[in-house]
């Protein structure tokens, strides 16, 4: 089981299903998020991430299953006080300034605006507070969106592809803030369509594919469970490539190289056999399955399930 389950989860999603006309947008999705936990919800466009967020916010009523936010129904007053939301394409009235936006949302969340305004500092917008949002860059709007989401120390942060459109530096700063907020006890559920983007920043991932949850766990656990082959590329000495291919199998590529693949468990054995032939070998490259390979593996599971 996952790290946070000892605590009462702040978000409980249990067997949720949503159908639009004849499209099953979500089918039997279940997972929990505990206080202080950072969970990334991964999926292609149209996998059902935004639909799930809308259910958690109470905008959509699931046809099946049950969601509770801080013990209450989504959309209830208590639930809305506990959740903060940052939509994928965050937008604010263009004519208002950053300070006005933060003051406005503080009032909507029953928080003293004087307590909320320092958040502009935190996200690096202190200088831009008096400028109109219409003049902000996309990254600045996203930071303002984050400041808005942090007003009133929410128990659950719901971030829909929060770092799309951010440059690498802003992205790092963004995750530093998320880390700090999670350390203070907030649960963070963020969506993304690339595993490589969230790696190192989150505790756990859940993968949605075609409306179904196909994986839920730590990246390391999921990578091991997937048993994806490791690729070993050997660069042969002059004239030795064919001999190596005959001995170890694999495929010849671009002139002097041979590519082998093996199970994770067979890696050490294969490498030691290779070193016995080191006079025939110029160089060895070992490529572990990439995060995107792991992600693709789990995403494709659902598609194979459909075909069966």
């Amino acid at each position: 089981m996952t790290a946070g389950t000892a605590q009462t989860p702040i978000l409980k999603i249990d067997g949720v299903g949503v159908t639009f006309a004849d499209l099953k947008a979500l089918q039997d999705v279940s997972f929990d998020v505990a206080p202080g936990e950072k969970l990334a919800l991964l999926g292609h466009n149209g996998a059902g991430k935004s639909t799930l967020f809308k259910c958690v916010l109470g905008f959509l009523k699931p046809a099946a299953g049950r969601i509770t936010v801080a013990g209450d129904a989504p959309g209830s007053n208590h639930a809305r006080r506990s959740v903060s939301y940052l939509p994928e394409q965050v937008a604010f009235p263009r004519m208002l300034t950053g300070i006005e936006i933060i003051t406005y949302f503080a009032r909507l969340k029953s928080v003293d605006p004087r307590e909320a305004l320092p958040l502009l500092d935190l996200v690096g917008l202190a200088q831009a507070g008096r400028r109109r949002v219409g003049d902000y860059s996309k990254g600045m709007r996203q930071r303002l969106g984050l400041a808005q989401a942090l007003i009133g120390k929410p128990d659950l942060l719901l971030l829909d592809e929060p770092t799309s459109g951010l440059d690498p530096v802003s992205r790092r700063e963004f995750y530093e803030i998320i880390d700090r907020v999670a350390q203070e006890g907030a649960a963070v559920l963020l969506s993304s369509h690339a595993l490589s983007e969230v790696e190192g920043h989150i505790d756990r991932i859940a993968i949605l594919s075609k409306g179904r949850l196909v994986a839920d766990g730590q990246i390391k656990t999921l990578a091991e469970a997937a048993r994806l082959p490791i690729t070993i590329r050997i660069k042969a000495r002059e004239g030795q490539a064919d001999a190596l291919r005959d001995r170890f199998g694999g495929t010849r590529i671009n002139g002097r190289s041979v590519e082998l693949s093996c199970e994770p468990a067979g890696k050490i054995d294969l490498v030691s056999r290779l070193t016995e032939r080191r006079e025939e070998i110029d160089d060895i490259d070992i490529a572990l399955p990439s995060l995107d390979d792991i992600y693709r593996f789990y995403s494709n599971l659902a598609e194979k399930g459909d075909a069966a």
Binding site: L57, F59, R81, P87, A91, F92, L108
Partner: peptide, 12 residues
């Protein structure tokens, strides 16, 4: 324009 979702997510 997408500004309403944020407002409606707050406890108003």
């Amino acid at each position: 324009r997408g500004t309403m979702a944020l407002v409606m997510a707050t406890p108003i």
